[in-house]
Nucleic acid binder design. Sequence first.
DNA 1: GCCGACATGCTTGCATGCAAGTATGGCTTG
DNA 2: CAAGCCATACTTGCATGCAAGCATGTCGGC
Lengths: 243, 243
Amino acid sequence: MSEASELDPFGSKGVTALTPIDSAPARWRKVDRVYDELISAIRDLRLPPGSPVSESDLAQRLGVSRTPIREAITRLAAQGLLHVVPQIGTSVALIKLPEVEEAAFIRCSLEVSAFRRACARPRDVAELRRILERQRAAVEAHDPERFFATDEELHREIFRLSGYPNVWNVVLGSKVQLDRVRRLYTAHAVRSPMLFDEHTRIVDLLEAGDVENGVELVATHTNRVNLLAPGLKAEHPAFFAED
Amino acid sequence: MSEASELDPFGSKGVTALTPIDSAPARWRKVDRVYDELISAIRDLRLPPGSPVSESDLAQRLGVSRTPIREAITRLAAQGLLHVVPQIGTSVALIKLPEVEEAAFIRCSLEVSAFRRACARPRDVAELRRILERQRAAVEAHDPERFFATDEELHREIFRLSGYPNVWNVVLGSKVQLDRVRRLYTAHAVRSPMLFDEHTRIVDLLEAGDVENGVELVATHTNRVNLLAPGLKAEHPAFFAED
DNA sequence: GCCGACATGCTTGCATGCAAGTATGGCTTG
DNA sequence: CAAGCCATACTTGCATGCAAGCATGTCGGC
């Protein structure tokens, strides 16, 4: 995949790196490509919270008309990631601590339930072990990108083992808020070994069917963002809303 | 509005404290009205599963252009309620038993967690009692509409007491699938007394802080749809997908 | 110098026209 | 009569033009 290579030739406003979508393969509908590009940019903070986005600007930058842009914005606004004010403008939603807490609550609740459910079913943790092995490599290589990628794979696989694979999509919807916070945590690399160890223990407990210790660990694991968020708000006040 | 800080990126240097109320709520955007109308029609089965919907037809019927229709369809398609096939047509998504199960799982998980959370906080069940009283009246009047309305109020209030009121919106997103199934259940009126009794017990257990019995009851209460769905699929096969 | 009014440029909301593709009914042909 | 072909009417995807509204820069008056 072509990483965001070129800087903005028009001048450094708020929007910097958005990969044009015309290079993408195939006949996917443009609105889907625009949506993927935008939500990815929002999650990676390439579109920082509070930065203004303009339909015409995005249309020019992504090389499409305003129509697909508008439909993607409609979806993102319904998801709470964009704030659209008619006749004034659209901006990336600021991070709100209550929303982060609620997103963490949703994720924690669903992941704990999925773990409990997976423990009550026949399960094959071989795929989880393979993901863990790749994650170990990512940790040893100090590669946060690959670590996050394997992290998502691992949690998605747990939902698959629970028998409700699509619930992961709901988690994804709430997780964008958490990912934006996590992006602010520059020292996440040093935490990776600890998170990796927790993942390993979670897989062990799942394989053993140890519900009690498992749900406890999954809960603390998925709730850790709440400990970081307030400090990050003090560190990056411009990205957060004053509740 | 307290959201005024989100407008700052557009350059309003002055104090935005005195924003008159007339501009904001006066004219809803057409896309919102179309979305509400469509999702309501889908939930009430006025747009039955599998029925085709045409952008031009809806535009004529609702008296707007295709643009707001398309944006509403985009949101509903992202929610899994509409099936859009490019160059062929759009139809109301069929009911899929696995999706119903997953929606029930999501709702059950979140409601159980909210109940548990509400039990661990200071709580005032007065509003719940008031809702129960209105629900009792609806049951005695054999008014399913009012029963469903109070049902939603009650569950939303529990989320409010949990401290995570917006989580209810996530539940709402999944609940449309369950509501469509419930609409097929013509004999829901006779079940209302039982459901009302369960609601009363849930409120009692919440007031008493009885977590163990409470989560058990909430779980069975929110999972009841799964018992009905297979039979309803046999009764209305045209509305369901052959998995 | 200060303040107010106007014009201009921006924003999003909406309507419409065109393009590309598919299903279908009727016609032609064997 | 049956089977294949083609025109037509439909669908959605996308681009574009216009309308309404707000913020701001500029100019004129005091």
